[in-house]
Structure formats: structure tokens, C-alpha cells
Amino acid sequence: MYHFDWVLFWKYLWPVTAFQNPLIRNGLIVTLVVSVIAQAMGVILGLLAALAKMSKIAPLRWLQQAYVWFFRGTPLLVQMALLYYGLGVTHIFDFPDWHIGAVTITGAIQAGVLALGINEGAYMAEIVRAGIEAIDVGQMEAAKSLGMTFGTAMRRIILPQAAKVIIPPLGNEFNNMMKTTTLMTIISAGELFYGFEQVNALLFKPFELYLDASIYYLAMTTVWSFIQSKIEASLGEHKAMANQPGLFRRLLGVH
């Protein structure tokens, strides 16, 4: 019978002791920072792609189509490896480590953020487009008839309204993003799961350690779900959002 190592389990679960191992502490920081930056990149790229899709300029629409087609049609894991090893070996971009003060951003982290962000943009494009298209065409007509250019109308009238439609799925995307960062393990980018893998390589306690890793991710996604429902509640001030599932239902995935 398997002897469950409770001491090890607790050691790598309790932050005070777990963080004594820099692989775990830095791994958690990398996971959180990478998630936020990659998601922000995804939102910006998604917005640009959504605008390109609605553009009158045909080459912009083709570019958007090619982008979405490639990044939604190939596995993120492959994109990440292609970006890091492919660009490295061809010397198109070597991903040198960046040193900012005492912090080192390794090439693998840069490649990871880039791959996650670009991939996310291809998915955010659809979410942003759906948000913009949910706004009545009369809003754009009213804005134009007041002399607003397309850009001003988007910024002042359409996007503030579309944000209410975009933010709930955006929150779900961020929840996924925190979990998807684990793919960076393939390029040894040193995020949280990579930390647990390294510890496991040394101690070979996969059950205890991967259970700890699971609990860390569960903690992150749960905290985020609370933050998300607060954000959505504040958005609902002027508009009832009765059809949005509550926090409990969302966490447990019941409908």
C-alpha cells in the first residue's frame, strides 16, 4: 500500500515552508505575472483583430483571418515550442535574458508570454467582436450624426457599452489563462508547475506534490472568481444582469 507522505504534502502546501524553495516562490510569481501580461496582450490583440475584421480594407481582413485561422487551428503547445526553439535556432530572435535590476526575465518566459498572448488574442478577437456587435447599430448612427469619427464613436460610445458584454467572458478567459501557463513547462520557463516538477524530479513524490500544485491553482482560480463576481456586480449598476450565473454555480459548473 502507498504510504502518503503527509509531512512533505504539508511542507509544499503551506506557503511559509513551500516558499523557502525559490522554484515554488518564483514559480508562483511567474505564473501570476505572466497570466496578467499575456491576458492584457490578448485583449489588445483581440481588439485590433476585431476592428480589422470589421474594416473596409480587405488586406486587413485577410490578415485577421490568417491570424485567427493559424492560432486557433494549431495547438498552443506547438506554437510555444515553434516560437521559442524555432525563432532561436534560425536566429530570427534569440530570446536573450533581460536583466532589470535584481530581476531576470529569461528568454523562455518572454517566449511563453508572447505565445500565450498572441494565442489569446485570436480567441479574444471573437469575444470583442461579439461585444461590439451586441451594441445596437443606432448607437453608431447617432454618434456619426453628431459628427463623431469612427474612432471617437468607438472609444466614447461603442466600447464602453461593449465592455459590459466583453468583461464576463474575459474573466473566464483569465481563469483559463492561469491554468494554461502550465504549458510553459515545455520550454522550462520556470512557472509554478515547473517548480513542482523540479521538486518532484528530486524527491519523486508525484502524488503529494502534484496534489499541492492542484491546490495552488484551485486557490488562484477561486480567488479570481470572487474578484470577477465583484467586478461584474459593479458593472451591473445600470443594467440588470439577472441571466449571469452566480459565483457558486460558476465555481461548481452547474447550470
Binding site: 445596437d136 443606432g138 448607437q139 448612427e141 447617432a142 454618434a143 456619426k144 450624426s145 453628431l146 459628427g147 463623431m148 469619427t149 460610445i157 464602453p160 457599452q161 445600470h238 443594467k239
Partner: peptide, 19 residues
Amino acid sequence: SRLRASIGMVFQRFNLFPH
């Protein structure tokens, strides 16, 4: 846009900005 700025328009469905 510049020309439209000098022409007022009122729509059947009001089209006020709800936010």
C-alpha cells in the same frame, strides 16, 4: 464627420447613449 456635425438628427428609436 465635419459636415455631419452641423446637421442635427433625431431618430425613431431615440438612440440615446445608455451609459
